[in-house]
Design a binder for these strands. Sequence first.
DNA 1: AATGAAAACTAATCAGC
DNA 2: GCTGATTAGTTTTCATT
Lengths: 144, 144
Amino acid sequence: MDETDRRILHELVRDARASLEHLGRVSGLAPSSVKRRIARLEDSGVIRGYTVQLNHRALGTGVKALLAVYVAPGTSRESLIASLSKEEEIVRAWTTAGQSDALALVHVRDTDHLEEVILRLQRMPGFAHTRTQILLTDLVNRGG
Amino acid sequence: MDETDRRILHELVRDARASLEHLGRVSGLAPSSVKRRIARLEDSGVIRGYTVQLNHRALGTGVKALLAVYVAPGTSRESLIASLSKEEEIVRAWTTAGQSDALALVHVRDTDHLEEVILRLQRMPGFAHTRTQILLTDLVNRGG
DNA sequence: AATGAAAACTAATCAGC
DNA sequence: GCTGATTAGTTTTCATT
């Protein structure tokens, strides 16, 4: 991991479909050298994958919320993962240290849809309660 | 936006570098037809871009936290955006309706680095205080 | 709106530096 | 570890359906 790798990664964050030639111009390498570095970054796990950034509003799921999840004592991480992964509205989730046990970022169509997701979670075994925070404007979005 | 578009998008979420030929096999179209649909999805704003998914632990910024930000009355969204965008540790931020005024997802090296970011935020004009929640395990990650 | 064929471009491989 | 040449594969365009 040197400055050249970082330049390649920075450019791939901006555009994951950039050609090796373009990445070569940006990083000062020949395309074949860029390819080898990318292969190394993929093999070492620094690059986890390539994805498309969607406009959820245009897709009809423009309402975002962060659900703080409180679980019953003794609930395993495995059952948490299993429960949360099942909900396709949950696009991101973490266990946490702090005010709640887990956080789940959800994308829904509207508040009715949000309520439906919350009720589904609350019915799951091991879930004590949830606290909802609606996300309004996107201020910063750097992949994260 | 029909079922074919959704299949193409689903595949691009999984792998933004999938070839038109592969996307054609998945969606049942010829590569040139896939190309046209993708162009339409890009032009209409459904596809915002293509990015690489990084392993932040491998990059040395393996500590994640969610900062609940409370601002002083009268602080504009513009100054919030300006302040938060400046911090490269902030990878995602939203204004919110609920317990806090904004949420910021940060990626830092360690807890010292986290404290540094928090102190930097608290020194900014218009920031009242922050509440920190450390994110432990990634349970779900579907782009979001 | 989709197709297949042609042309242009890009990726992948590898011998040599 | 990088490069340039070669080959294989992919994207792009467009006339046709």
